[in-house]
Nucleic acid binder design. Structure first.
Lengths: 335, 335
DNA sequence: TTGTAGGCGTTATCAA
DNA sequence: TTGATAACGCCTACAA
């Protein structure tokens, strides 16, 4: 299969390469007959324009990147799905990158793609307490970024969020209504981003009902499954809370395992509500009450905004878009 | 921020652009001092070589594509995770594409990237009964493809598979051991690829134990959740099988929902085993017995093979690599 | 070790 | 409507 490009096509058809090139562009001055001749011939040869040549010439790649802390998480996957779908419809390809919760990988990736590899980026960041000053060196005009879910508050970039405060407040209030008073809050990082917002909702709900906010009921977890299991086990044995509000899905799963280990009955001995996008939460034993974020929609919305920026359209409204989560009450939190 | 490229750097440092270019290559004849001068300066400016220029020049993109039927499926996500990880380690980026079980999208995507967009492809295909002759027009020397899981048997391409026949055989035998005789087989397409292999294992296990293989216990499902729910409900009510072997995870979930709807007790009234990569299968009610494929490993292995091909290294062994699945028995299939 | 120069495959400008 | 030509930014003979 000899190399085939616009030049060889031009030769074969007795045209110039400019004409051939024009045949592949939507609105260009070209005789419809010439165009169809070219397209027919090119099609026979299965020719496609070379991406790299076009990208180099046009200074754009028709590709966006989606950066997430981890891939093995339904929530992020659904977001990617939404983003990929929206991007696809607009003719964009999607590059995926998992930072593995490591800010160095995040920086390295963003920097490495910052010279034209992608036209724009959707990102859920590693963590605000990390040094993320590298972002100041990125030319955001050239490669716009849109944050979603986990964001750097101090960076002035459009953010797609969910109403974490409000839904945490409601979830906590729901547990209070279920007669819980010693409600634990399981979190990875209560000082920043989502961990913080969700904490505030939890705290304010307690305060509204005159329940003291006890530091010893805030459980700081990690990203290690084994560690969390031990942490939570130790905690449940010692503090004997009557409810657990998990700010992140996987902490709820760990809690389920610990309860099974300790012989605790959910919801009799311990009620649970968790942020979770698990589609089969209803099939768990017992069915898990969840605050479910509109994951796919987050992905779509983030992609939509990014694509607008790429088209240099004004992005409507504020730099912060807040989508609503849903509190779905199932047996794990019922009386 | 004015444009910055090797030329501007060269000027600033009183060097030629070739020297600057060399500074970014691993093994090139360049004075270490010159190199570090250049790198330091470039780093200050946050310069990265332009991907598209290098790619065009070098005719490679350091990017692979992963093509899957759907993204909202733990199994594929884990595979992607494995592939992305392996690719990342080798300095490759990962492009994701979901075909939405539509062979036209599959063809369109593969064709569109076939001229240099990516160096190679990992793909789990839409379905063998679809017309996939487009692959004959792809230059597999230029852009190698590795299949995984769902493959086109008639295309001569390296395939990463799991021991579907064997594990289906075992799963079925396990149900027989649990005193089941009317074992249903839930499948999307029993004629092809994985659906077929799994069917054969199921069939042969029955035959080995002198249990007749009944066509009316083979349930053909679709990709629509609602349809499957009705199909399975109708089936369970009419045929009253004592066990279900689901060749695909989501069919097991549907079965769970149907049982709950019909008031059937699992495993008392109906035992279930399913192909599933759900990490929290143990938390379901009841815990689901699974045939679990080594998803992440599939992704890693597929990427590893592809990367070898890209380096023009000989790929060892056969064109078919078979990984082992694990039968994990939980309560859903116990006496 | 460094510099010169040509070309990777396109697209855009300008002229015909 | 079509053709000639000059970029896009980089890499690599080859020469110095």
């Amino acid at each position: 299969m000899s190399k085939i490009d616009i030049i060889s096509i031009a030769k074969a058809l007795n045209l110039s390469k400019s004409t051939v090139s024009r045949a592949f562009k939507e609105n260009s001055d070209i005789n419809p007959n010439t165009r169809s001749r070219i397209l027919a011939y090119a099609n026979d040869l299965n020719y496609r324009p070379n991406h790299y040549a076009s990208n180099l010439r046009e200074q754009k790649s028709k590709t966006i990147a989606v950066v997430v802390p981890e891939l093995s998480n339904n929530y992020f996957t659904q977001i990617i799905e939404g983003a990929e779908q929206t991007a696809k419809e607009a003719g964009y390809h999607t590059l995926i990158f998992a930072t593995d919760d490591n800010v160095n990988k995040e920086r390295e990736f963003i920097t490495s793609i910052s010279n034209g590899k992608v036209d724009g980026v959707l990102m859920s960041v590693v963590g605000e307490r990390e040094d993320h000053s590298y972002l100041n060196n990125i030319d955001l005009e050239k490669m716009p970024i849109v944050f979603f879910d986990r964001v750097y508050d101090d960076i002035d970039i459009t953010k797609i969020l969910t109403d974490d405060y409000q839904s945490s407040f409601e979830a906590t209030e729901h547990l209070i209504d279920a007669n819980c008073r010693d409600i634990a809050y399981l979190v990875i990082d209560k000082e920043h981003s989502i961990g913080r917002e969700r904490y505030l909702g939890y705290r304010d709900a307690l305060q509204k009902h005159n329940i003291p906010v006890r530091e010893d009921l805030i459980v700081n977890c990690s990203n290690s499954y084994d560690e969390n299991f031990e942490t939570i086990k130790y905690f449940l044995k010692n503090k004997k809370p009557d409810a657990v509000f998990a700010s992140v899905e996987r902490l709820a799963f760990s809690t389920y395992y610990v309860c099974s280990d300790l012989g605790l009955n959910i919801p009799k001995d311990l009620k649970i509500v968790a942020f979770s996008s698990l589609q089969i939460a209803a099939l768990l034993s017992p069915p898990l009450s969840t605050v479910t974020q509109p994951a796919e929609q987050i992905g779509q919305e983030a992609a939509r905004i990014l694509l607008k920026k790429l088209k240099n359209e004004e992005v409507e409204g504020s730099k912060q878009i807040v989508l609503k989560s849903k509190l779905i009450i199932r047996r794990s939190s019922q009386l």
